[in-house]
Design a protein around this nucleic acid. Structure first.
Lengths: 169, 169
DNA sequence: CTTGGAAAGTCAACAAGGCTGACATAAAAT
DNA sequence: ATTTTATGTCAGCCTTGTTGACTTTCCAAG
C-alpha cells in the first residue's frame, strides 16, 4: 500500500503520504519524545520522584482544585497507580488534598508552595527545550506541529486536550 | 518569564513563544504520544509482547543485520534490558541472531518471516493513524511537524535519526 | 606467543510504575 | 433504607527499566 512512487496521475503531490514518509514521522516521534522528557527526568532522578509524579503535578498546577477522578481521566491510569504517586506527594508536602465543600466525597488537589516550586523547576526545563525548538522552527512550523499532533490523538483525548487548552487560553 | 502579553515592541509576533503556547505544545505531545502508541499496544497485549518488543522489531526491520550494540544505542536502554526482549523474540522464532563472520563477538539480527509478519501488522496499525493525521493536516503542516520534532531531539539522537532517515530515503 | 584489557553478550536480582481484584468508608442519590 | 459514587488501601502481578558479576572473543603490547 502506497509503497513505491505514486502513479503519474497522483494529483497534487501525495508524496507526503508514502510509507517511507510515514515511517520517518514515526521515528521522529520516537526520538523527539525522548528529548521531550529528558530534562525533567534528569532533575527527578536526583529527588525520589519519577515521571509519574511530574505528570500529576503538571495537571494539578494546570487545574488547581481538580478532583482525583478528574485527574484520573486525564492521565489515563488506574486510581491505584495514581494514588501511590499522590500519597507520596501529599506526605512530602508538595500537594494538598482538601475535602470538597459541596460534595464531601471529593478531594480537591492543590500544589503547596513547595510543590509549586518543584513544578516550576520541572516545567522551566521542559519549556526551555520546547522554546528552543519552536524558535528554531518558526511560527508556521509550530502551527503545523500542533495540527498534526492534534489529529493524532484519540478523539476522547482530543476533547480533554481542547478543554484544557481553552481553559488556559 | 514571558508570562503575560508581550510588550508592544515585540517585533513580528513572538506570541508563539509565550509560556502559554509552550505549555499547550507540551500537553499536545503528551496526549498525541498516547495516540501514537495506542494501536500497536492494543495488538500487542493479546500476544505476550510489549512496546519494547515492538521497538526492537521496528529497528531490526529497518536495519537488517544490525548488531546488538547498534540497536542499543538507537533504543537508549541498557544491553541487559534489550537482551531480555531479544531473548524472547529469538525463542519465539521472530528474530534470528547470527554470529558475526568477521567479529565473532557480534550478533547480527534479522527478522524471520514470522517476525516480518508481526512487524508489518504492528506498523500497519501505527502508519494508518499517522496517515490519517497527515492527510487531515496537509503537507505543509507535516513539514512543520517534522521540523519541530527534529529540533526537539537531543543532538546525539538527532544524528541517529538523520542517519536512519538517509538510509531509508 | 602470551597476556591483559576492551568489547559483546548473558544471567541474576532489584525498582518504578503500570495493572487487576477485593474491600472499606463516607456521602450522595434514589 | 438501599444503592451508587468518590476515594482510599492492601496484596500481588507484569513489563521494562536499572546495576553488578560473569563468559567469550578479539586485539594489541610486550
Amino acid at each position: 500500500m502506497a509503497q513505491g512512487a505514486p502513479g503519474p496521475g497522483g494529483g497534487e503531490s501525495l508524496l507526503f503520504l508514502t510509507d517511507e514518509q510515514l515511517r520517518k514521522g514515526i521515528e521522529a516521534m520516537f526520538f523527539a519524545y525522548r528529548g521531550f522528557t529528558a530534562d525533567p527526568d534528569r532533575i527527578l532522578e536526583d529527588l525520589d520522584y519519577g515521571r509519574a509524579h511530574h505528570r500529576a503535578m503538571h495537571f494539578i498546577h494546570r487545574s488547581p482544585g481538580t478532583t482525583v477522578n478528574n485527574l484520573l481521566s486525564i492521565l489515563g491510569v488506574t486510581k491505584q497507580s495514581l494514588n501511590r504517586v499522590l500519597r507520596t506527594l501529599i506526605e512530602d508536602g508538595l500537594v494538598e488534598s482538601r475535602i470538597g465543600r459541596v460534595d464531601k466525597r471529593e478531594r480537591h488537589l492543590y500544589l503547596t508552595p513547595k510543590g509549586t516550586e518543584l513544578e516550576r523547576t520541572l516545567s522551566d526545563a521542559q519549556r526551555a527545550r520546547m522554546r528552543a525548538a519552536y524558535r528554531s522552527a518558526g511560527p508556521a512550523a509550530v502551527q503545523g506541529f500542533r495540527q498534526v499532533l492534534e489529529a493524532m490523538m484519540d478523539p476522547e483525548l482530543r476533547r480533554q486536550y481542547q478543554t484544557l487548552k481553552e481553559g488556559g487560553a
